[in-house]
Design a protein around this nucleic acid. Structure first.
Lengths: 148, 148
DNA sequence: CTTTATAGGCAAGCTGCTTGACTATATAGA
DNA sequence: TCTATATAGTCAAGCAGCTTGCCTATAAAG
């Protein structure tokens, strides 16, 4: 591999990712959720399916439990999540999205789709699918880390 | 475009970018530069060619001039950059890399190339070039933003 | 039924950013 | 040329989001 090729890829990937975060954040705000920032979206992504405990959320975000607890407190205060008793462990609490949390999640998905739309206009559906398949072979499978 | 395709792309791009940042940061530290974090790399990328003023650096990093000034102060203290008088404006200072700063920049390039190497193993040179060309059509040209 | 581990919250502290105020220099206008 | 306004950079104080250290309540193990 030429150095030229190796060194051109990281700035492209990182620049595209930064642009994507900015576009999705803008789209979420334009849809009326102006009190959230990208970091909150990473939390929503973990809470969306069936909720999670504070500890699970902390692991997902790669921060301490205290930091995750503070984030949850903030999201509770803003009406996006609720603390429920955990069905299997009285020490833990199950953090779940409220209806407002789900509405925001849907807004984020719309914003994400909107951010990707210009890519299809530029590449066409065929080459866009190739890009998806290529990235799927390179991206680490486990950690989702950013969503917006 | 199907929603499935649109919604699968952002997590892949963001996950790959996060993984890339982590690998490059690791590689830079392994090469002996343990007192730097990814944010410093974005600064080095702007300073590398011919130096820059604090204000230009601030604009590049998208932070206030004060924040950029504090970053420069930290990098001066650690021996990576020097403040020189600006040739064209006695108010300004030209911030340039020291030899240690250049050594770190070279280490970052090695680490970046190392991080990309598994991609070639996975895809082969042909498809890796296609990826580069595809990304080059999508990524915003102006802002570099992350380097590592 | 004691011992040890785990979930999560409270409090204090640190770091990296911000805003506000200031000095020195540059630039524009009478 | 002299004055007025804008700009480069720094100092100081404040804020936000994270950390570490500590604590209580509950769980799990011997």
């Amino acid at each position: 591999m030429t150095d030229d090729l190796a060194l051109s890829l990281p700035p492209l990937v990182l620049g595209l990712a930064a642009d994507l975060v900015r576009r999705i954040d803008d789209g979420v705000r334009r849809r009326g959720f102006e009190d959230l920032r990208p970091a909150h979206g990473y939390a929503f992504a973990r809470l969306a399916p069936d909720g999670a405990s504070v500890g699970e959320l902390a692991e997902h975000l790669d921060v301490t439990k205290q930091a995750a607890s503070q984030l949850v407190e903030e999201l509770v205060g803003k009406g996006y999540v609720e603390r429920h008793p955990h069905p299997a462990d009285a020490r833990a609490r199950l953090i779940v999205l409220t209806e407002r949390g789900w509405a925001c999640t849907r807004a984020a998905e719309e914003a994400a789709a909107e951010a990707v739309r210009p890519w299809e206009a530029e590449l066409g559906p065929q080459r866009l699918r190739e890009l998806r398949d290529t990235l799927a072979r390179l991206a680490p499978s486990g950690r989702l880390r950013p969503l917006w």
